[in-house]
Design a protein around this nucleic acid. Sequence first.
RNA 1: GGCGCUGUAGCCAAGUGGCCUAAGGCGGAAGUCUGCAAAACUUCUAUUCGUCGGUUCGACUCCGACCGGCGCCUCCA
Length: 472
Amino acid sequence: MLTIYNTLTRKKEDFVPINPNEVRMYVCGPTVYDYFHIGNARSFIMSDVLRRYLEYKGFNVKYIMNLTDIDDKIIKKANEEKISAKQVAEKYTAAFFEDLEKLKVRRASIHPKATEHIHEIIDFIEQLEKNGFAYNVNGNVFYDVAKFNEYGKLSGKKLDELDAGARVDVNEEKKNPLDFSLWKKAKEGEPFWDSPWGKGRPGWHIECSAMSCKHLGETFDIHAGGNDLIFPHHENEIAQSEAANKKKFVNYWIHFGFLNINNEKMSKSLGNFFTARDVLKLYSAESIRLLFSQTHYRGPLEFNDELLESAKRGLEKFDNLIDKLSLLPNPLPKGEGISPNFDFQSYYKNFEAAMDDDLNTPQAVAVLFDFVRDVNKTIAENENLPPEFYLNVKEFLSKTAQGVLGIIDLEKSDIQGGSIEKELIELLIHLRNDARKEKNFALSDKIRDGLNELGIELKDSKDGTTYKRAKK
RNA sequence: GGCGCUGUAGCCAAGUGGCCUAAGGCGGAAGUCUGCAAAACUUCUAUUCGUCGGUUCGACUCCGACCGGCGCCUCCA
């Protein structure tokens, strides 16, 4: 049974979806005004892991991630770059999908855009007006926080306390400083849409309520996002959706911890961030995903080169085993060998137990490392293993390490390939081994060192010489 | 000020009232292999869980105090 820590109840709960075999989940996506940073990537990756694990468990997952493609930051960027807001959004939307793909994050079922749901958003605001939760002041429409009794139930804040602590950003039009914009009146030169309240554009929070409702229904299973969205964003979504639909909005709220640099939150405003695409220039998606998987999703995650490097090194254990598998004859000889005493089921069981426990990926990763070690031992201790053994190893890694966590790529063995490059390397290895037979070590070492400089490492073993390419 | 999180080996990081004299990764050490090397593989690497008290037959795990770190309360994954 999968358990999930629910921010709403502050407890770990059994996960029971509304429909038995289906999970509907919504994750807050990016505002497309810039490249996203590696801290944002954590949310995308961990959401992806959650989605993959739900599928592993047999659920049919309907996964929505929105794109905020109209907003103050986009308009600001457009003015800076002297292009339209639409062009900014298009540019960074394309970049967003490119980066996701490089991170091996699977696309959501649908990535709805705010600007393509203006109609739904307007309907939603009208419903709020009708229910008495919204008020219009000169074309600006606000949500009346005081009308929603349960305001603060997600973040554990109380209205009066919030009021006291709220930083004064005086907006004369608001009844309460905590009221937030549902519809913003267009200023001169800003993009706008026609509405019952005049020309304007939607506020930030309303798009998620409108789009989740359209694509997932009034009540759905999981809503996820970064810790900093708890308040006010998710709190406001609840206020909007529950006030409009008069129904519970979301059953399970999941929030991801931050990425820290030197024990400090990575953020655009602090300037201590790396874009995902820059990190990807130096490290593979698998390295990044392993690093993220080695910390529980709710806790803070320390991020630096040394840790990325150690994740990359850790990955080599998997890669070496994958290389071993890829060197086996294809197809494997049938029915030969003695079955070792190797209990694959217990590894599946342990992996699932870890993941079921509020997505304890560090524990799950530990199970995978144990698995690799035990497989290596078994291979070393048994001369004549049956083909099923290797097939089972591959299947296990394929389902868990690759399928759920995405920390390995079974199709991409370094040893594989069919290019001329491969043939040249093999020719050099032959020449070198001839030199070694003649004890011409000066020449053989020269070849080895030369290849090394090109990023190709030779490995001599009993069964011959193999090579691998240096990796990210 | 309000609310919340957190302190485990050189670094990162799970975990639990007795199976913990504490997973896993990196780093370090030794061994196997090797012409040498690298790599690989194997083994070892915290008598101890921020400090001090308390509860308990028993705590690192529960409670209290103290010290330290972080976050939200404002756009933010």
